[in-house]
Amino acid sequence: MSDARAALDADDVARARVGDMAAFADLVRRHQERVFRFILRMLDARDEATELTQDVFVKAWQALPDWRPEASFSTWLLQIARNAALDQLRRRQIVQFAPLEDGMDVADAAPGPEARYASRQQQERLDRALQRIAAEHREILLLREVEGLAYGELARVLGIAEGTVKSRLARARAALLEHFHPQAGATHE
């Protein structure tokens, strides 16, 4: 995140902390897409993700006094979002690895006649494969690959050591590759 954006966040947080709801609304608008995107891919349910994204910002409002400028506001929000998503998954009781359904072989490449079709199929296979790995693997992959968090930020959001980030990422990738075989170059067409 750019320094200018971080400064803008810090300024809005300072105003929100003294009760300025308009400043908090600006923060929400600036970060809602990122939080929503992460939660949606964690839960794979749009309405649920929309509700939970709102909950995340309400929790953030309540926890604003705890925020420290040393931490990026965006990373802090993702931490709240991550906890909320895991809580939701626990409620659903599907945190643990869900085996593949019979007859559904997402690892099979199904190339279509056109490159765009193949690319779309690959995206769908990746989305499905993501839902088939453990939540702790899915979250770290989404935060790294989609949200682009650095190892230090991952450690902060997940509450683990940086060395653990490295090994967990490797295990998460290995788990995902068991269900998804990327076709190198397909996405560049």
Binding site: A25, Q32, Q122, L126, E145, L177, A184, G185, T187
Partner: peptide, 29 residues
Amino acid sequence: ELRALHDAFLALPAVSLQVDLGARVIARL
């Protein structure tokens, strides 16, 4: 394979909330 996996993540379609959550959250608060 790991690099292709990274590319596959980058190619995931963008998802958008398409609502002004700022107004909703403030109303709820």
